[in-house]
Design a binder for these strands. Structure first.
Lengths: 263, 263
DNA sequence: CGGGAGGTTGAAATCACTCAATTAGAGTGG
DNA sequence: CCACTCTAATTGAGTGATTTCAACCTCCCG
């Protein structure tokens, strides 16, 4: 375990310590929800009273595992996470990457058994929220339920897009598409601009996400670098040829359903 | 268009005609929802008053298309449907197959723009339900909202499983896994037994679902037939070697989240 | 008995994989 | 600051799975 859990009840404590506090995490959640729909004061107040446990995590730590029956959801405050499944014979499929503001295991609210695992992809801070509290919140405020439901629907849309990436795009297009997707998602929450961002993924991670081998990912990256479209070094990606990259993979961000931008 | 639309208000008409009536469709919906959780009489009554339009469709007809902004959802009463997307250059990716009881475009309730299309895969009967009515229903009955939400979450779980099929399984395993999945889903709603079912899919459809060419699907089927594990002819599949097939692809139905079986 | 969609097969080409070795970088302890 | 170590990145060579192309067959339906 990477650090001590810190349990708070919201709005009874002020963040006098370093690092993300529960207040910070609730702000994150409210900002996230308001990026979709307006919240009433009553709704915000109810969210503010959610019991939250904040915990720092190291890279590569599982947050929930396949077969678990979790009793809480995790809100990612800092760092990246991914969802994945291990097949026999050491193969791995990564289903999604998650960035601050995401609730990667929101589905566990209604699907009792985990059919995959969630893992940190970098150092991270997560806020755990008990199912019980979330279920009560969504039962009381259908508007909040609708926003969270919508969030899982967007997840599904991204899964579909990845399916076409894996199934019907060339390796070059698949990598390009992933880079475009991640940029648009990060940019939307203010974590990237100027077509550059921190990318805490190894080539093996990229391969496991796109159904390719790490070796082949390496060659694809070499080609993209050779064309001068990307710079990737030390976990930082710069897209120097956005237009070309987006055109190569026919990138259309409709499926991300970013109707409004986060504040 | 394949036939006339028939508009009813539920429980005000009795099905004196041939074919599925709105009552039939509401029964289907209630049965579907009750396969997940018990419904109160009040909830059943509210569902019974949903306005529904029943329509027969031919095979290969689009129900909704990418870029559409639908104002209704469709409940599949008879026949199969699939969700898909066309890429440039004539490539197609199929995201899911749907069977009676499914609401393939339920996501449109909260995602305004379609990022893919839905198409009948055989002759089919569908019931259209206005978004307006569903939104009111879910706002009034959080329990019903939760069941429908859950349904879309299972969709997502199947998408993930398909991702691993396309990305990390061999062609043989991928086909085997799909056949197992479809059997379990059909069996759960009483549409299959004895490891056999009607499969209204061409080899090209299977290929587009699994990210393979129709030619290769053909060869894989030949191999599965050669092993004596399946019989596939005239749109009917018999799995003669269920154990072997399931073992080949390491089939684990957890991801289908069939906690209870439909009546 | 024709027409058409779907199924089947062979041959050649291609994309991506595996294996194996080498290099680069980051972190650690002396 | 350097040697050591571990992980990740890189490269080459050989292999294998799957695609593409093209032809032919089969079955169903009107």
């Amino acid at each position: 375990m990477a650090g001590r859990a810190v349990r708070f009840h919201l709005q009874t404590q002020r963040g006098s310590r370093d690092g993300p506090t529960p207040n910070h995490s609730i702000d994150m959640l409210i900002r996230k929800l308001e990026s979709i729909a307006r919240l009433s004061d009553e709704e915000k107040n109810a969210i503010g009273h959610l019991p939250v446990t904040v915990r720092p995590l190291n890279a590569g730590q599982d947050i929930v595992r396949e077969k678990d029956r979790p009793s809480q959801c995790c809100l990612l405050l800092e760092g990246w996470a991914c969802r994945y499944q291990i097949l026999g014979k050491g193969k791995r499929q990564i289903f999604s990457f998650h960035i601050p503001g995401d609730i990667p295991d929101l589905q566990s609210l209604h699907l009792k058994v985990m059919d995959h695992s969630v893992c940190t992809q970098s150092q991270a801070t997560v806020a755990f929220i008990p199912h019980e509290a979330l279920l009560e919140l969504t039962a009381t405020f259908p508007g909040i339920a609708a926003i969270l439901w919508r969030d899982t629907l967007v997840d599904g849309a991204v899964f579909r897009e990845w399916m076409t990436g894996i199934g019907r795009r060339t390796a070059l297009q698949a990598v390009a598409h992933l880079f475009c997707e991640l940029y648009v998602k990060l940019e939307a929450v203010g974590l990237a601009r100027d077509h550059a961002y921190r990318l805490p993924l190894t080539q093996a991670d990229l391969g496991d996400a796109l159904g390719l081998s790490n070796v082949h990912i390496n060659r694809v990256l070499k080609e993209l670098r050779g064309k001068g479209w990307i710079t990737l070094h030390g976990g930082r990606l710069e897209i120097n040829g956005w237009r070309e990259l987006a055109h190569l993979c026919d990138f259309d961000p409709t499926y991300l359903h970013l109707e409004r931008r986060a504040a």
